[in-house]
Design a binder for these strands. Structure first.
Lengths: 340, 340
DNA sequence: GACGCCTACTGAACCGGATAAGCTGAGCCA
DNA sequence: TGGCTCAGCTTATCCGGTTCAGTAGGCGTC
C-alpha cells in the first residue's frame, strides 16, 4: 500500500509542497480557505507526515526516551513502573509524542543508551528513574545537553529538571501514626540503599525516631523483591526485641512480610502492624488488607512527562514537588499487643 | 554540542559520503583497509547515524511498536506485560531496534494508532497482544500491510504471523492433576470472555470435564482484576455445591481468591485447592504459596520479537507454538476434604 | 598495446518534509 | 499612473543518510 506524501496532497490541491507544509503546521503563508481545502484533502487521501522526514528537517524526533534499569524479575512484579509508564504515555500521546522504552542492565549501560539516543537523534529528551546518590547519569546527561527530567530528589539532580514527592514527610506521618497507636519498637525494611529516595526515607526515619525517643528503631536493607523482603522480615521477627510494627519500602515486600509473619504464627495486626509504601491494588488483595502510603502514580508520570515536554519546548528547567504520599489505614495496623 | 554527521567522517577520512556509508553498512564498495580506517575515525569522533535520516532514505524506522489495550489499573498490577516487554526489549536492543510503546483505551483506538504509525512510518512492524475472537485488528493490519506478529492463537490470526502457547494442553493437565488428587467439583474463574485465549481455555476446560465425567464443572467470567476475582470466588464459595478446587486465569485473581477463602474461614488447601495461571513471584509471596501454571514470559516476548524481525526482514510469516505452560505444584493444592 | 574487466571509489539524485527567499497581483495612496 | 505594501503563494535549499550510475586506475589477456 502506497503511503501518500506531502507532494501527493500538493498535487491534489493544485498547490506547492511548501503551501501544504504551511497549512499543516498552522503557519501563516496560506489563506484560511486554502488551508481548509488542503487539510480536507490531506484527511481524504489519508495523509500523515513521515516522522523520519519531519525529524530530519525539523531536527526533532517526536519521541521521548525512558530507560529502566532493574532486572526483569523485579520490573515485572512491581506495579510502580507500569503505572508510571501509563501516565507518561497518556501525556505524551496527547501531544503526539512517542515513548521509546529500553530495559538496561546497569547504570553504565543506561548512559550508553543515552549517548546512542543522542547520537542517533532518536529522542528529544529522557526521563530518569531511580535516582542514586552521586548519580553518574546526571553529569553524563548534562554533558550531552540532552533535555532530561529526573523522577526523584530533591537534590542530587544537578542542572536537570526534577520531580519528587516528599517521602520524608510521608514517612514521618507514618511513624507518628504508629506511635499514636502505641507502638514503640518500629522497624523499617528499606529498598536498595544506593537509591536517593531510600536515603531520604532512611534519614527521615532516623530523625523522627530520635525526636519521638524510639531507641529501638532499626532499618534493614533489601532489594524490593519478595524473597528479600520475606527474609528481612524473618530476621526482624526472630530477634529478641522484635518490633511491633514494620514499614516496608514497597508493596511486594510488605506482602511477603505479611506472609512470613502469618507463617511464624503471628497475627496481623494483633501481634504485628504492617505498613506498605506504594498503595497498589495488591495491598487490597491480601488478608488483612494493608495500610499503605499511596499516591497517584500515573499522575506522577504524566506530570513528569509534561515537565520534560516543557524543557524540550525551550522553557527553563523546573524543580517541582509533587503530591505527598498519603497514608490509607486498613486492616494491617492496630495498637501493639499489651505489655510489649 | 554538535553532533558529527557522515560528512564529517568523510572529510576526516578524505573520502566521499558514499564510501563512508558503504563502510558503515558492511557493504562492498570499499577496500578492507579503507573500511577499517573509516570505522576508526567514526568511533574516534563519536559518530552515530541519525535514525531520522536513515529512516528517510532507507525506508526503515528501526523501531517496533507495541500497543497495550488494558486500563492502567490492570496493566500495572499484572506482572505479565512487564515481563513480556522486558523480553521483547532484550531481543530488539540486541539488534539495535527501538521499542515504541503506546497505551490505548480500546481496540478502535489501537487500530487508529496502527494507522498513524503506518502513516508516519514510525515503526517497521508491530506486536499484537490480547487476541480477541473476530479481532478487528487483524483485517486492519492486513490491509495496511504492516508487518505484525500476534502473540496469541492458534487460529484467528488471518495472514499474520503468530506465536502461542498450548493453553488447552496446560489446562487439561491441571484438571487431570486435580482429579488425580480426588477433586470432582472444580470451578474456573476465567479472564475477559472475548479474549481468544479465554475461549480456548474455556473450550478445553469443558472438554476435559466432559471426558472425566465432572458434571459440576463451572466457569465464571471476570476481568483479571483482584476485585472481580475476589467477588467471583465469594459467589462460588457461597453456592450450595461449592467447588473443592478453583483454577484462576491469572495470578492476581488467584491471590484475591485465596484471600476471600481465608476470610470465609476456609483453609487452603484443606478445604479448597487453588491453581493460578501465570506463575509470577507473587505466587510465592502468599501463604500458602500457590500452585501455578508457569512459563518463561520474557522468553515468550523475545521469541515474538525475533519472529517479527524475521517478517520485517522479508522472511515468510510463521505460525509457531511456544513452550507449553507447566504446572508447578506448591502449597495451595491438596486432596479435597473427606466426604465432599 | 588495445581491449575488457574488476576493484575502489566519486558525484549526484533521492527520500519527505521544513523553511528562507523570491515572486506576483491586488489594494491603497499620493 | 507610478510606487509601495502585503497577503498568498512558489521555488529552491537543506536536513543526513542510502544508493545508483558513472569513472579512474590496475591488471590480465590475446
Amino acid at each position: 500500500m502506497k503511503r501518500p506524501t506531502i507532494a501527493d496532497v500538493a498535487r491534489h490541491a493544485g498547490v506547492s509542497k511548501g503551501a501544504v507544509s504551511y497549512a499543516l503546521n498552522g503557519q501563516p503563508g496560506v489563506s484560511e480557505a486554502t488551508r481548509q481545502r488542503i487539510l480536507a484533502i490531506a484527511t481524504e487521501i489519508g495523509f500523515s507526515r513521515s516522522s523520519a522526514a519531519r525529524a530530519l528537517s525539523a531536527a526533532t524526533a517526536g519521541a521521548v526516551g525512558l530507560a529502566l534499569c532493574r532486572p526483569a524479575r523485579i520490573l515485572g512484579i512491581e506495579p510502580f513502573f507500569m503505572a508510571l509508564i501509563s501516565g507518561v504515555e497518556a501525556e505524551l500521546s496527547a501531544r503526539s509524542y512517542a515513548l521509546t522504552l529500553q530495559v538496561v542492565a546497569d547504570p553504565d549501560a543506561e548512559i550508553a543508551v543515552y549517548r546512542r539516543w543522542w547520537g542517533e537523534r532518536r529522542v528529544d529528551g529522557v526521563l530518569i528513574c531511580d535516582l542514586r546518590t552521586d548519580d553518574r547519569r546526571i553529569p553524563a546527561l548534562e554533558q550531552l545537553q540532552l533535555p532530561a527530567v529526573v523522577i526523584g530528589g530533591p537534590g542530587g539532580t544537578g542542572a536537570l529538571g526534577s520531580l519528587w514527592s516528599d517521602d520524608a514527610a510521608a514517612l514521618t506521618e507514618t511513624v507518628e501514626y504508629l506511635v499514636a497507636l502505641g507502638h514503640r519498637r518500629i522497624a523499617r525494611v528499606a529498598g536498595l540503599p544506593d537509591l536517593r529516595h531510600t536515603e531520604i526515607r532512611t534519614d527521615a526515619f532516623a530523625a523522627v525516631c530520635r525526636r519521638l525517643g524510639l531507641v529501638d528503631a532499626v532499618t534493614v536493607w533489601s532489594d524490593y523483591s519478595g524473597e528479600e523482603g520475606g527474609r528481612a522480615t524473618r530476621r526482624l521477627l526472630s530477634s529478641a526485641q522484635r518490633p511491633t510494627a514494620v514499614i516496608y519500602d514497597n508493596d511486594v515486600m510488605a506482602i511477603a512480610g505479611l506472609s512470613v509473619a502469618q507463617e511464624m504464627g503471628l497475627t496481623v495486626p494483633g501481634d504485628l502492624s504492617i505498613v506498605a509504601w506504594d498503595d497498589s491494588p495488591l495491598c487490597r488483595l491480601v488478608h488483612p488488607p494493608l495500610t499503605a502510603l499511596g499516591r497517584d502514580i500515573p499522575a506522577y508520570g504524566a506530570h513528569a512527562a509534561r515537565q520534560l515536554l516543557a524543557v524540550i519546548g525551550g522553557e527553563p528547567v523546573s524543580r517541582v514537588q509533587d503530591e505527598t504520599p498519603h497514608l490509607t489505614p486498613r486492616g494491617s495496623t492496630a495498637p501493639p499487643p499489651r505489655g510489649r
